[in-house]
């Protein structure tokens, strides 16, 4: 079970969180003309990386905040975690 550093609550076990997918995906702005390709990329197309992956988790049984987690998908190593509004350098 992963051990995730919630930026709001500290180290918590994975069973307090729910996974939310790729954090690098940006929703196209509202009311903006979006091509089929752009929309498909936003809704469906994901890279399924092996290695370092920035992903979303929600601390659903804790502070209910969505957070960003930088994790290695093959080793499960977690490098850094960020608040929802933090830009990832």
């Amino acid at each position: 079970m992963l051990y995730i550093n919630c930026p709001h609550c500290g180290m918590r076990s994975q069973n307090e969180f729910s996974y939310g997918g790729d954090a690098s995906v940006k929703r196209p702005e509202l009311n903006k003309e979006v091509s089929d390709q752009e929309w498909d990329d936003f809704v469906y197309n994901r890279k399924s990386l092996r290695g370092k992956h920035l992903e979303l988790w929600q601390h659903i049984s804790g502070c209910r905040q969505w957070i960003k987690v930088e994790r290695d998908t093959s080793t499960h190593e977690i490098f850094r975690t960020f608040k929802a509004n933090e830009e990832v350098a």
Partner: peptide, 13 residues
């Protein structure tokens, strides 16, 4: 609830 929180926290803060 999670859905609303997702948009409020991440998409339209």
């Amino acid at each position: 609830l999670s859905h609303l929180e997702y948009y409020l926290q991440l998409v339209w803060p």
